[in-house]
Design a protein around this nucleic acid. Structure first.
Length: 484
DNA sequence: TTAGGGTTAG
């Protein structure tokens, strides 16, 4: 277009900019922006909106997008939706929510598209209170409940811990797309409700909905999280034979995960060796992690070394190897691995736990002393430790990946971010109310066992979302039945 | 007659 003789006009630009956004090409987008200025631009808001969207959809462009956004007049929801959606895509969900609050303050009415973006931010943060507030706004404003908006609500409720509400919503929808089915199946999978996920999939087929590759990922992950190894294998075959969907690396990855979780590590290795497509590093990491949890340590060490050779710049690989050495009590080699990481300037992502209280989100890291109440929190954690021990809890000090004595290891465990967050919640919420926490990593063995005790001692339901699934703790038991 | 949106293993 830039080289043609016909002058582009304000009707042409949105199409072209949208295309740039679609392929995420910042340079191309910038050159279109340049031509727009060159040919004269009358400040048409449709074009400005698309410019904001384009910059917010391209890697490295969000700052320019924000600058344009700040400078333009914003009387309707469109630029706000574009900007909020941009933050969500970048994983800056807190910024997305802040901007939404700003929009409220400025009195601009959100529409259903804004709400979809805000709900995505809630989903990412695991912020159920906030999500419920957004739902109430949707009702209050009587916004059009499009399929997309309902899907975003289903996904939010499922991933923020209220999967029953997600199911209820799904049942009330008059019109459903494959995404609606997938959202609810994935949600059930995350909560370990594999039987329900499988039966919903069967219902979907009976209803004549054509499955796609994505819904099979949800289905296989449901089988994986519930330990349905044979069923998972059947569905994996069915994909190709019945529905002519060629399994992709993600599907193979689900199968490896499923075998690993069930403890069939050797079978998983054979499966990977026989795969018709090249396994990716995610598949290898799944295997190495399983070698650690199921004590196939020598095999895990070899695979992890191989991974480091293939991807020497990825810190996750070094963390895996280091954790395997810790479990082997090979402290010297563990230290060496850490030193290599230090030299390369790599740092492990710190584990953190988030909790929502009175419309505020609090984030804790291990040994966190940045909170106003940190002294009280530490005292509470110590008290919890004493109560738990009285009830029969034994700290699993083998979880502590440090070469220090047992007593220090216990202290270290007690300062884990989830214990701090739970202590904070016990102190600041009325007795008997459920506690919801969101972790950025997978919950460790010790915190898993401790949280079971806490749920019984303090008579609280504790709902924890970790990186891979939900754990509902109640009366000293967890919904995952220790299968995770 | 042009602008912003939903699902994906570890």
């Amino acid at each position: 277009m830039l080289e043609c003789q016909v002058l582009p006009n304000n009707f042409t630009y949105p199409f072209v900019l949208k295309a740039c956004a679609g392929i995420g090409d910042l340079n191309l987008g910038k050159s279109v922006h340049g031509s727009l200025l060159k040919f004269g631009f009358d400040g048409n808001n449709h074009v400005l909106n698309t410019l904001v969207h384009m910059y917010c959809s391209c890697k490295g462009g969000i700052q320019i997008g924000r600058k344009l956004f700040d400078e333009m007049t914003k009387n309707d929801s469109v630029p706000w939706s574009a900007m909020i959606g941009g933050y969500v895509r970048l994983g800056r969900s807190n910024d997305a929510v802040d901007l939404f609050r700003q929009m409220q303050i400025q009195g601009v009415c959100p529409d259903e598209i804004t709400m979809v973006a805000v709900l995505c931010a809630c989903t990412d943060l695991g912020a159920l209170e906030l999500g419920r507030w957004v739902e109430s706004l949707i009702e209050k404003r009587k916004l059009n409940k499009s399929v997309e908006l309902n899907n975003a609500l289903i996904d939010m409720f499922a991933k923020c811990g209220d999967v029953d509400k997600a199911l209820k919503l799904f049942r009330t929808m008059n019109e459903r797309s494959i995404v609606s089915w997938t959202s609810v199946i994935v949600g059930l999978a995350m909560h370990g409700r594999g039987l329900q996920a499988v039966s919903l999939f069967q219902e979907m087929i009976r209803d004549g909905v054509e499955p796609d590759g994505v819904v099979f990922i949800g289905l296989l992950s449901a089988c994986s999280h519930s330990g349905f190894v044979e069923k998972g294998k059947e569905y994996f075959d069915l994909m190709r034979k019945e529905f002519a969907i060629l399994p992709k690396i993600e599907h193979y990855g689900c199968m490896v995960d499923m075998l690993c979780r069930a403890g069939h590590v050797r079978e998983a290795v054979e499966f990977v060796q026989k795969m018709p497509i090249e396994p990716n590093s995610i598949v290898w990491r799944t295997l190495v992690n399983a070698c650690r949890t199921h004590s196939e340590l020598k095999l895990g060490e070899n695979l992890a070394k191989q991974l480091i050779q293939n991807e020497p710049t990825l810190e996750a690989n070094y963390v895996l190897l280091s954790n395997i050495y810790a479990k082997m009590s090979h402290w010297e080699e563990k230290t060496k691995t850490r030193e290599v990481m230090d030299k390369k300037g790599m740092r492990k992502i710190p584990g953190s736990t988030m909790i929502e209280l009175n419309n505020k989100i609090y984030r804790f890291v291990a040994g966190d002393m940045s909170h106003n109440q940190f002294k009280e929190i530490f005292e509470m954690v110590d008290e919890m430790g004493r109560e738990m021990k009285r009830a029969g809890y034994v700290p699993s000090t083998s979880e502590v990946m440090l070469d220090i004595d047992e007593e220090d290891k216990e202290d270290n465990l007690n300062r884990h971010s989830e214990k701090l967050a739970i202590a904070f919640a016990l102190m600041n919420t009325p007795p008997g109310t459920p506690i919801r926490i969101v972790k950025n990593l997978r919950v460790c063995n010790d915190c898993h066992s401790a949280t079971k005790f806490i749920s019984k001692i303090y008579n609280r339901e504790i709902i924890a979302r970790d990186r891979s699934r939900f754990h509902h703790f109640k009366d000293g038991l967890c919904s995952c039945k220790d299968f995770w």
